[in-house]
Design a binder for these strands. Structure first.
Lengths: 224, 224
DNA sequence: CACGTTTATATTGCATACAATCTTGATAGC
DNA sequence: GCTATCAAGATTGTATGCAATATAAACGTG
């Protein structure tokens, strides 16, 4: 008699965190949060000890993160945390602006009333987080809001591209301390986006998303 | 006395094809060309035998390709070649259209006269390939032309995104036989793009790139 | 003292072995 | 005959060991 986790004939728990996914998520988070510093060499043995796994699954995770661009693998010479200099960041924000524009043009036409209501709830929570100066919550809700917008394009390629770019933005944001004034301005921009979205003014939404992205870019890049 | 490839104190041959890169390139090509059919299960042992490597480097390559979206890994249940249905293709072309538009808006301003001359040469070779019905050469030159355009944005994120999307397009194109009439039309579209680029008419270039992408999308999707 | 050479150490690359999980075919029960 | 259960086989997941390469330290030479 085995445990209750037996699964006759094929499991359908798609969200069980297998080791590979866990490792990727964990290392990615360490990079984003700066626990693994940019440009730093990453000896396999050290990470193995930290994460309590052997080299095989760890190396597999590093190869995957390399395809994501967070890790740079130099054959026979080890892995380094991919550095993100100002020019890289500019490129990331420029690409993100392109995607934001597309999102803005399409979401107002594709979103249902329920979708917009759900976004409004996220936006209201964002306002609460700002008012109570809960920076962690603000970051998380902000992420959720924009990811939800990307989702509403219904285009999985767009979503994948957006998420990958967003991760790189997050890396930079974790390094800096967001100016409270910038957070307020950002919230205002969000309010404008929601107002335009409610009346489904697609060009307006697109413009506002692009402007919001540009303002964020300026704030982040000025801090680096 | 070893060969001339010895490298005291650190090699700088960055382009030496190490096994990992080779495996990724090889398997990717097999997927693009359809040697590994979409939806097909990929038992590790079989690929190991084919490629004459052990499971360790092979698995690392599969994880990397999974991050690229060409392979889908089901934990404990093996890898499959990610299927590309019509809706997926539509999403790919839509995303590519977004990027093409950005390329069209920016390249006319950033390209030097020499850059444009180099593109013109590629275009002329493309015309030769079409005239001589050299389909392989046409495909390769067409790829090179568009990749060069992406390069000229000077934005590595855009380039990376574009290449990843282009690989998925290639997968679909390998399945179909391009209609010669479509190839001629495509060449005409390229001629129009070059004409607009020579006079650096950015909006025109952007529109033409988007239209070219849409026409390709229609041709490819109609065949699937 | 600087610099190139050699040797030792550390780290990565790959192959293999074993454990865990899934897949299959066979068998028994209804 | 059909479904459920179980066992044998196949496949994937992880750990470990050895070979290849790079890094560093020590050494000698000009």
């Amino acid at each position: 008699m085995t445990t209750s986790t037996i699964n006759p004939h094929a499991r359908l728990d798609e969200d069980k965190p297998d080791l590979h996914s866990r490792l990727i998520a964990e290392i990615r988070q360490q990079i984003v949060q700066g626990d693994l510093e940019a440009g730093m060499r990453v000896p396999e043995a050290h990470l193995c000890a930290t994460l309590n796994v052997s080299r095989t699954p760890l190396r597999e995770a590093l190869k995957a993160l390399s395809a994501e661009g967070l890790i740079t693998l130099r054959p026979n010479r080890g892995a380094v945390v991919t550095p993100l200099d100002v020019d890289d960041l500019r490129a990331v924000f420029e690409a993100k602006g392109v995607i934001e524009h597309h999102i803005g043009l399409n979401v107002p036409q594709k979103a249902t009333d329920e979708d917009i209501a759900a976004l409004q709830i996220l936006h209201d929570q964002l306002a609460v987080a700002e008012a109570s100066h809960d920076r962690a919550a603000y970051t998380e809700l902000n992420e959720a809001f924009h990811r939800r917008m990307a989702d509403l394009t219904g285009n999985s390629e767009i979503v994948a591209i957006y998420e990958r770019l967003q991760i790189k933005v997050l890396r930079a944001r974790y390094q800096i301390n967001d100016d409270p004034a910038r957070v307020r301005a950002s919230l205002d921009e969000h309010a404008g986006i929601m107002a335009a979205l409610r009346i489904r003014a697609r060009f307006d939404v697109a413009d506002r998303l692009v402007a919001h992205n540009a303002a964020t870019a300026a704030a982040v890049i000025s801090c680096v």
